[in-house]
Simulated scan of single mutants.
Amino acid sequence: MRAMDVFTGLPDWLRLECQPIDQLQGDLFPEESQQLARAVPKRRREFTAGRTLARRLLVQAGYPAGAIPADASRCPRWPEGVAGSISHSESQCAAALASLHDCRSIGVDLESIGAVTPDLWPYVFTPAEQQVLQTTTIASPETAKLQATLGFSAKEAFFKSQYPLTKLWLDFPQAEIRQLSARSFTLELTETLPELPRTVSGLFWPVPGQQLLTLLWL
């Protein structure tokens, strides 16, 4: 699966790709391997997939294929001048990147459709969002399942994109879904943060394995 085959609607300056984890088991740099010294095999596979895919995008964008170690908060430490994000599910890995000349930060997230079950809604969604999901469930349980996954994933992508700018760990109710269309969403912050716009928009796509990928940039 190539990015151009699936991810329509992207600006020319942004690169995004999603591939099966099993197909992304390349070599790591010593600095990266050292950070995995105590990692279980599953974590090593996921980390390796993310770095392999991210390096592929870096080379495509004209950057050297260097190490991408994790920082103290376990976020990827991108080369100077690059904004990027990595996400993985049980079977898939996604990476996105762009130049800091084009955006301040990027957030990408992968989720399995249906994993955000109703018992999790009070922790993930505001009362208004929960009401919409409850109403949708009555009319179409499958649609509600998709919307719950999208809402969770959109917030995760936003949290990833805002962290490099604010260094804050936000709670899910601090962002609320305001609008959905066929391939896009809009989030509104429920409180003002000086470093961030009050409203942000992003894109989403289905990916193989009944999964959903969300992306936004600031």
Rank of each mutant, 00 (worst) to 15 (best):
M1I: 11
L10Q: 09
P11S: 09
W13P: 04
L14C: 03
E17Q: 15
Q23H: 12
D27I: 03
D27G: 02
L28Q: 08
F29C: 04
F29I: 00
E32Y: 15
Q35F: 05
L36T: 02
L36W: 03
R44W: 14
E46C: 05
F47V: 08
A49G: 15
R51H: 11
R55H: 10
L57S: 04
L58A: 06
V59R: 15
A65H: 01
I68C: 04
P69W: 08
A72N: 09
S73P: 00
S73W: 13
S73Q: 12
P79M: 02
E80I: 02
G84N: 04
S85P: 06
I86T: 07
S87I: 06
E90A: 15
C93F: 08
A94V: 14
A95T: 07
A98S: 15
S99E: 15
L100W: 03
H101T: 13
R104T: 07
S105I: 05
S105D: 12
I106K: 13
V108G: 01
V108E: 06
L110F: 03
E111P: 08
S112P: 03
S112V: 09
G114M: 00
A115Q: 15
T117Y: 05
T117I: 14
P118T: 03
Y123I: 01
A128P: 01
Q130E: 14
Q131N: 11
L133D: 01
Q134C: 12
T136Y: 07
I138S: 13
P141E: 06
T143Y: 05
A144T: 01
K145F: 02
T149W: 09
F152A: 04
F152R: 06
F152S: 08
A154F: 07
A154C: 15
A154D: 10
F158W: 15
S161G: 10
Q162F: 11
K167N: 14
F172H: 10
Q174F: 06
Q174Y: 07
A175Q: 01
A175E: 00
I177N: 03
Q179W: 02
L180K: 04
T186S: 13
L189S: 12
T190R: 05
L196S: 05
P197F: 02
R198P: 00
S201N: 13
L203C: 12
F204Q: 02
V207E: 03
G209P: 01
L215T: 09
L215V: 10
W217T: 13
L218I: 14
